[in-house]
Design a protein around this nucleic acid. Structure first.
Lengths: 223, 223
DNA sequence: CAAATAACAATAGTATTACTATCTTTTTTA
DNA sequence: TAAAAAAGATAGTAATACTATTGTTATTTG
């Protein structure tokens, strides 16, 4: 089975929908790869234009600036993660198993092989790890938030939050806990790979992080 | 009592020690304020030079680029936090009370009044909240880390980690937990103020965040 | 099928950024 | 008080982050 997911993207994210044309799709998919390769600060529309044999002007017809492209990509990934979460816990009846499944899903790096999707899952995962928080750590958060650009992130968070409530309806801080797990599943991986002294897993050992997060969640939610 | 703290800064952080001259100190203290005002991306050395009535060239004699200034400031703040942590738990014998004290210290915004220090604590706290992770989320992490630029952050983390171990010597993930608390004490505050849907505290209510983090830590460390 | 229209390429141009270089003046220190 | 160091003044460059214009090529629609 070769599944191909698409999400309805907020139209404030772009000037012209990149999904509607070949160039548009290239801007998004190659842009993602290039941001990962160079880092967001070094990435420019000029470089991307050269890479995909188009012009800067063309890219600017799709995205207002490179930050919008970043938010577009992150938004796609958050939606994708919510989809994966929903899919993975489908038919599971125990909230405990649901939460365990979600943590694994968040921590484990997706496979890199044969990805012929519009947006590469593996690349999106790398982006989350390295540039994810830059989507909201700007002076435009409030405006962007009003434009509902972070809705997919909030939806993902509240999806996890509701399972936390399912597990322990009396727990007072399901959103804090959900966003903590979400944030930490990515940033602790960054630490493991780049600043291992901040972690307890010097090698790329996902199991320890999974155990840590599961412990954290279930001890906290103990009834 | 008017205490004035100074830390030995890593000399890889600057080209010329800004503490040694009036302009240097202005670059640091006004630079901090300006980054907070404009946001790191919009901040430039040119603008800072105009503000403090000096030239770009002069600033470049102190710092290689604006990212180095950011790391300098963050490094100062991490050292300062460690100092505050050590100071605040001095004479406390119970590891539990130590951890509770530290969480409060991390979460509560410092007072803004009459700060005649070289670096304003309140401004540094804002910087941590808005730009903190940008210090390490770059393609230079590894190099910067080799130059020991993140040592103060690691020291702060391991300081907390050792109290966690003191509280429960059998706990397997003291570093994960310490860095989680450290990161979350700042980024959940950012969420509370800017993306409250991700939290359980719509108003600026520190108590809830403090309770959440204390719960998190003590349930996790339950023997 | 022709005409209209939208999309894209090509090109040019501007203000700002992120620097480097050089020379002069001022301040510090020996 | 002379030498050295720091700062100021000024200039310049390559790259960035855009905007605008015009011509060309697809695509849509009447």
């Amino acid at each position: 089975m070769q599944l191909n997911v698409r999400f309805k993207m907020n139209d404030k994210l772009y000037l012209k929908n990149p999904e509607d044309s070949a160039v548009g799709r290239q801007i998004v998919s190659e842009g993602l790869k290039m941001i990962n390769k160079l880092g967001f600060e070094v990435f420019t529309f000029k470089k991307l234009a050269t890479e995909i044999h188009t012009t800067e002007a063309t890219i600017y017809r799709y995205f207002e600036n490179k930050h919008r492209l970043l938010v577009y990509l992150m938004t796609w990934y958050w939606s994708y993660l919510e989809y994966k979460v929903v899919f993975s816990i489908n038919n599971l009846s125990s909230a405990e198993i649901k939460l365990k499944t979600i943590i694994k899903l968040l921590v484990v790096e997706p496979a890199h092989t044969q990805e012929d999707q519009f947006i590469s899952e593996w690349e999106a995962y790398q982006l989350m790890k390295w540039e994810g928080s830059k989507a909201y750590l700007t002076r435009n958060v409030t405006k962007d938030n009003k434009n509902r650009l972070f809705k997919p992130y909030k939806d993902l968070c509240s999806r996890i939050s509701s399972i936390i409530k399912e597990y322990n309806p009396k727990y007072k801080f399901p959103n804090f806990l959900a966003s903590t797990v979400l944030e930490m599943s990515h940033s602790q991986k960054f630490f493991m790979e780049n600043l291992p002294a901040l972690t307890d897993s010097p090698e790329k050992n996902d199991d320890k992080l999974i155990t840590f997060l599961q412990d954290l969640i279930f001890h906290t939610l103990k009834k």
